[in-house]
Simulated scan of single mutants.
Amino acid sequence: MTEATKIPVLAVVGPTASGKTAAGVMLSQCYHGEVVSADSMQIYEGLDIATAKPTPEEMCGIPHHLIGCVPMDANFSVADYLALAKPVIADIHRRGKLPVLVGGAGMYVSSLLSNVQLAPTRQDARLRAEFQQYAAAHGNEALHQKLAQLDPEAAAAIHPNNLVRVVRALEVCILTGKTFTACKAESRIIPSPYHSLQIGLMYEDRQVLYDRIDRRVDEMVRAGMVEEAHAVYQNEALRTAYHAIGYKELIPYFENTMPLGECLDKIKQESRRYAKRQLTWFRKNPDIQWIILSKFDKKQEILEKCKKTIANSDLLCYNIS
């Protein structure tokens, strides 16, 4: 694929509650786009309120893809996301529309736009259980040391307390006979079919973002988040939902071991921590063009800032205007 034939993709990324949904819709309206979600929890059906799925009113008639399309009890990986997202983007482009990638799942965004080649996830439940049991018995640091022995580079990049990634890296090492680092390098050999512009939304004052998060949690509660979470809690088969912020923190309330107010405070705290982790991830990406938002930015002002960034790029050369 030559540079001239690459598919243009506009991405809107950033931490939770930064206004990505509204920006993605407004930009889609301006540039004849359709939204492709890059959210690791909104993709599940039934997980609506706590994952902040956009409502029909918020979508403003703009088609949204990869939202609520995976069963709640299904395991879903980055490879699975790529398998769904690539044909959707190709179809949007084929119809003369602009794919607008919107979300805060940094691994989804970077893997897609970099054209990371991942085979459907090969897993070994027994092996994973052994690693998890070892960490429980000896500590996360001890398991992380096992990874350091097999793949020092991967161990240096993965925090010992990120147990999910440590276990996955070890699993890849054992199952493939290669280091996790080598497998990642091999996955990036094929050039990307996309010409992308990534716009990041970030508040100048971090406290403004945290206040937005707190208000959004309060709005979710009024919209029925507690009731939604209780329905999930009652179905033991829906363990996937327990990974989403807003569900697992309410379990103590449902089990009568913690007051509701404390659980909601925990949701706000975990949401703020998640936003901080997202910012840390995205800031490592030199390709992101940041829009620094202030406390007083209005939607139209944010739109104009985004349009200026687009005008200063070469994305419009790809016949999307």
Results as ranks from 00 to 15, higher is better:
Tyr274Pro: 00
Pro191Ala: 01
Met72Ser: 13
Ala4Asp: 10
Ala135Phe: 02
Leu175Phe: 09
Pro191Glu: 00
Tyr318Trp: 08
Ala38Met: 06
Thr176Gly: 09
Met202Thr: 12
Val35Phe: 06
Val88Cys: 14
Glu58Thr: 06
Asp214Ala: 15
Gly14Ser: 12
Ser271Leu: 11
Leu82Tyr: 09
His93Phe: 08
Ile199Tyr: 12
Val78Lys: 09
Tyr81Ala: 07
Ala79Asn: 07
Tyr233Val: 04
Cys306His: 11
Asp80Arg: 10
Ile320Pro: 08
Ile189His: 02
Gln289Gly: 01
Thr309His: 14
Lys298Phe: 04
Ala157Pro: 00
Glu301Ala: 12
Glu227Met: 01
Leu101Phe: 05
Phe254Cys: 06
Pro191Lys: 00
Thr309Trp: 05
Ile92Leu: 11
Ile89Pro: 10
Leu127Gln: 05
Thr176Val: 05
Lys53Glu: 06
Gln198Cys: 13
Asp124Cys: 12
Asp73Tyr: 05
Lys178His: 15
Asp73Pro: 02
Leu264Gly: 03
Glu236Phe: 10
Val78Pro: 06
Ala154Ile: 09
Cys317Lys: 15
Glu227Cys: 00
Asn256Gly: 05
Ile292Ser: 06
Asp297Pro: 03
Glu3Arg: 06
Cys173Pro: 01
Asp73Thr: 11
Met225Gly: 04
Leu250Cys: 07
Lys184Tyr: 09
Tyr274Lys: 13
Leu264Arg: 07
Val116Asp: 01
